[in-house]
């Protein structure tokens, strides 16, 4: 059993190394995007093998879905090929990378052995999460209780990081709303794709909702659900047109909702503050602490999902509305 796991580990890691080398050596940006899609599929497999279900789930949603799409949209702005630049010295980066790698290897020499149950990681903080979270937070998925309750403030920070990314993209690119599509006034008819997309979109949205509300029990939660939801809208944009999608979900509404999502998260904290607890202390939200935790996690996950979905769609819109200009 463990021999087969070891074999799978080795095969996956070897493929990962080869993919990385291919990414570094390639000059075609398009090939790099494709290979990094494979890279994230491989890393999701590795996370699965490491039994990190929630991480694998996020990697599945973000790495394979959104980031490929966004990187392609970026190439739409920048062009296919990496420009050849002779002037840049290759020695310095090489030395930096080698030193970093050497320090990392040196650092692993005294690292606690992987899968050893008496490691500090397993003995110090984790036991309480494992043993007490069902009674303290009351939901079966420990990862969700750590992310949303024990370390809920970090998650709020991450949501704000996503929001800050939106602010950056809006300031750099902006979203151009245009009434006519200059490149494709009449997009070529693609009946098979459109029928298929119409069939898929409800599925994807349904699944996003499942992930959103099932996060307490299984892998998933607001972040992943937001990404999956945004993928549905992206599919709609791709098979119909940007204008259709912008009529369906106008950017100004999305911008408001993205900010609102952050405020929902923060507002939960403020309410718990007003009710006499500490910031983000969900215990005080209801008479029964467990119920309070439940409500709190449900609300903040909703805020996370809202912000993430809106931000992803907006960033996608921003990229493609630029990409049209200079193909």
């Amino acid at each position: 059993m463990s021999a087969i796991n070891l074999l799978i580990d080795i095969v996956l890691l070897t493929m990962l190394v080869f993919t990385t080398i291919a990414i570094v050596r390639s000059r075609s940006l398009f090939a790099i995007v494709m290979l990094s899609g494979i890279y994230s599929l491989l890393s999701a497999n590795i996370f699965v093998v490491l039994d990190a279900v929630d991480v694998a789930f996020t990697e599945a949603a973000v790495g394979a879905g959104i980031s490929t799409v966004l990187m392609l949209a970026t190439i739409g702005i920048t062009g296919y090929e990496q420009k050849k630049r002779r002037s840049i010295s290759r020695i310095t980066p090489l030395i930096v990378v080698f030193i970093t790698g050497a320090v990392l290897v040196y650092g692993t020499l005294d690292m606690p052995a992987f899968t050893n149950p008496s490691n500090p990681v397993h003995e110090h903080v984790a036991p309480r999460f494992i043993e007490q979270s069902p009674t303290e937070v009351g939901i079966p998925n420990m990862v969700t209780s750590v992310l949303a309750s024990y370390r809920g403030y970090d998650t709020m920070g991450e949501v704000i990081v996503v929001f800050a990314a939106l602010i950056g993209v809006l300031s750099l690119l902006g979203i151009r709303e245009k009434k006519t599509d200059p490149v494709y006034t009449e997009p070529p008819p693609r009946p098979i794709l459109q029928v298929m997309a119409k069939f898929m979109i409800p599925f994807i949205i349904l699944f996003a909702l499942y992930v959103q509300f099932h996060g307490d029990f299984g892998p998933g939660g607001g972040f992943q659900a937001g990404v999956i939801f945004s993928v549905a809208i992206i599919l709609y944009t791709l098979t119909f047109s940007q204008q259709d999608a912008m009529d369906l979900v106008p950017p100004w509404v999305l911008k408001r909702l993205a900010a609102l999502g952050v405020l929902i998260y923060g507002g939960t904290g403020v309410v718990s503050l007003l009710k006499g607890g500490n910031f983000l202390d969900y215990n005080v939200l209801a008479h029964d602490p467990i119920h309070g935790q439940h409500y709190g996690i449900l609300i903040i996950e909703f805020g996370v999902g809202l912000t993430v979905a809106c931000v992803m769609i907006l960033i996608f819109f921003a990229f493609i509305s630029r990409g049209d200009k200079n193909p």
Partner: peptide, 30 residues
């Protein structure tokens, strides 16, 4: 790396655990 060594992220808690690990090469890398 610090988390792998000590199992904690809290600074005060880290401070109380690090003196025992002085010779560790992982700590030096961190």
């Amino acid at each position: 790396l610090l988390y792998a060594l000590t199992g904690t992220l809290n600074m005060a808690d880290l401070a109380s655990k690090i003196p025992a690990l002085e010779g560790s090469r992982t700590l030096q890398a961190a």
